[in-house]
Simulated scan of single mutants.
Amino acid sequence: MKSKINVIAASILTLFLTIGLSTSYASNTNDDKKEKKMAKKRKSFQKNKSTALNEMYNAYPESKAKMANAYGYAAFGNTGVNLFVLSSGNGGGVAHNNATGEELYVKMISMGAGVGIGLKKYHAVFIFEDKEAYDYFLEVGWSADGQADATADTGKEGEGGSAAVGMNVSRGVTLYQIADKGLALQATLQGVKYIVAKDLNGMK
């Protein structure tokens, strides 16, 4: 009788250990997948930043001087069809503090379905003149709907047949946009919000 009880107890213990190990393995696997996904997105956002800066400098050589005197910048990009259709957003980039070298990942989120439909290439660079403007961008985020009524003019042609637009969108902030020629860039500005990506920056 005692032997049978011991066997049953051992079986139950083995079952709990198996369940515990399986749960732990599944949890670790999910964590690994999540981290790989975030690492991939960080790499994508870094690439967006580099491409956006190159696009801006090619279209606007004078922007180099403005950048040299800036406190910081935030550069974004995305390529493909229907860039901002998803409400969760599928574009992003990096905010860079020129004074400290610190960088933060920032998401572009569509505030309405259909924004930017048909746009195959879009890049944007915000240049911040001072700490106040830069900090406000990171702490509050930025959206044209709430902070500017900027009308983009696609009259200036940049590299690769793209239209390049630079405009003062709020105090201490200049925005350069480079997108497909012929598309009203205001449509890519209105309805899009830029906010710090807490998950990619390890924030809670």
Rank of each mutant, 00 (worst) to 15 (best):
A144E: 11
A184F: 08
I12P: 12
F16W: 07
P61F: 11
G116L: 04
W142L: 11
S88R: 10
Q46Y: 09
M108P: 15
L86N: 11
I5A: 12
T51H: 02
G202N: 10
S162G: 05
N54R: 13
M56T: 10
D31V: 05
A59W: 01
P61D: 08
K120D: 00
K66I: 14
K43R: 08
V169Y: 07
A152H: 02
T51P: 02
K33F: 14
G114Q: 07
M56L: 13
S50E: 14
S50A: 14
E102A: 15
K120C: 00
K181P: 01
K198V: 04
L138Y: 05
K198S: 11
Y73A: 09
V140C: 03
V196G: 06
W142Y: 15
S143L: 09
K120W: 00
L21Q: 03
I117A: 12
M203L: 15
V7D: 05
I117F: 13
A70K: 03
Y134C: 00
A9F: 15
F126C: 06
D130K: 03
A164V: 04
V196A: 02
G146S: 14
M203R: 09
K2P: 10
D180R: 00
N97I: 03
K37H: 07
Y71T: 01
F16E: 00
K156R: 10
T18W: 04
G101F: 07
I19S: 04
E129Y: 02
V140A: 10
N201D: 13
K66D: 05
V173M: 05
I5M: 13
G161P: 09
I117E: 07
K193S: 12
Y71Q: 08
R171V: 11
K66V: 14
D199F: 05
A9P: 11
N58T: 06
I109V: 15
I117S: 12
V94A: 01
Y71N: 02
I178M: 11
V192F: 04
N28L: 13
D153G: 09
M1K: 10
I195K: 09
R171P: 15
L17N: 03
G158R: 09
G161S: 12
A9Q: 09
F137D: 00
F126L: 08
G114H: 11
S170Q: 10
N90F: 10
G118C: 05
K64G: 01
E139L: 07
N98V: 01
Q46N: 15
D130E: 02
K47Q: 13
S110V: 11
K131D: 07
G202Y: 02
D149Q: 15
K34F: 12
F76A: 01
N69E: 14
A65D: 13
S63E: 06
L200D: 06
L183Q: 01
I109W: 00
G202W: 07
D145M: 09
H123E: 04
M56A: 11
G161V: 04
A144W: 03
G161T: 08
E35T: 14
N54Y: 09
N82D: 15
V169I: 14
